[in-house]
Design a protein around this nucleic acid. Structure first.
Lengths: 191, 191
DNA sequence: GCATTTACCTACACCCTATAGGCAAACGCC
DNA sequence: GGCGTTTGCCTATAGGGTGTAGGTAAATGC
């Protein structure tokens, strides 16, 4: 009987989990479903991940990292509104292309895991964007929170289909919103 | 043996589910947990709700309704920035006071259920707020989406603890954000 | 080439969902 | 007040996800 090992590892499980999330939704990422994908019994996965929670945490960290990389790539060499737009588009594009991973990135992490995650890079990059707008503290923190809210809120509502009922392209509202944010931030910039 | 009936009904189950959601999180709202709360066997609940999905849908509709009522109450008799602030505060206050119900309100509804839900009142009320800013279509739709994104995004990130890491009060960032939105919308108003 | 480790297995217990069918209390009607 | 029907909750059972314990065979190391 030729038994070929499945070649499981935490990394492969995380990757497969990310794909599964994009295909079927983050809530469908279960150890059982993952085991089926590798043609293996669920119990076998516990040699590689401690629990379902740990797998989801790995997924969250992976998605945060991947998203941060894309944003970093997008904003490189840009400043001002150009950088703002690039950041925002990278963010929204990721949420649209990888809805499951994006959902995973919102998985609640415990404080110290969050502190060691790519989440801090997100905040740093948002602050970097704001250098183009010359905001003094605490306005900069306020602006970081506002931008985060808009980006996440828009991606979240769009993914939920909240913009499907009105016959105006979500893309146009997005451009309008970014324009609005740009002028709002400019009007707040220190003299 | 004195067997007292539990007095179950779809309404009472929904209410109890809402409380359970606020106390333990929306994902902890299960028919089993609800059955324990009424000191009844899980199977008994199926006489009142078709499925776990139906219960969650009822919860979502209930929360949307309740939130819409509060918002309507808050904005009554107000206009302009005053109305904007009242709307936004009612929204955020609800999310903070009732995190589980707020989560429930984000439960994905199928299109026709959504169309018959209080979700449409939310959109209408947002449009009403914007009357104070004199926006022509399609700008009004863009603005509805932007406001929805900010409100939901802020509430969502705040609930997730995203603002806990920086030592600036979330309340101040909120006020700053609303101020920012007000000026941004005013600058967009038609002549 | 033998001992150890690795990788996956079976078996099982627990919880949540869901269906089928039972029984007794409550209700409607004469 | 008695009788049939309906209502409200029950037990039993099946399926699926999580998680643990302990077994076995292939891969690895010396």
């Amino acid at each position: 009987m030729v038994v070929v090992r499945a070649g499981l590892s935490p990394e492969r499980l995380t990757l497969a989990g990310a794909d599964l999330a994009d295909e079927a939704g983050f809530d469908q990422v279960t150890l059982s479903a993952l085991a089926r994908r590798f043609d293996v019994k669920p119990a076998s996965l516990y040699a590689h991940v401690k629990s379902s929670h740990e797998l989801k945490t790995r997924l969250a960290l992976f998605a945060l990292e991947e998203l941060a990389d894309r944003v970093a790539d997008a904003v490189a060499g840009r400043a001002g509104k150009d950088a703002l737009t690039a950041f925002a588009n990278a963010y929204r594009d990721y949420a649209r292309a990888h809805p499951g991973r994006y959902e995973a990135a919102r998985y609640r992490l415990d404080p110290q895991t969050a502190a060691a995650s790519a989440g801090v890079r997100h905040a740093q990059m948002t602050r970097a964007i704001l250098r183009g707008y010359d905001l003094a503290e605490p306005d900069q923190t306020h602006a970081v929170r506002m931008l985060g809210s808009v980006f996440h809120g828009y991606a979240s509502l769009e993914a939920a289909g909240a913009f499907d009922h009105t016959d105006v392209a979500a893309q146009q509202s997005w451009a309008w919103t970014l324009d609005c944010l740009d002028t709002a931030l400019r009007s707040r910039s220190a003299p």
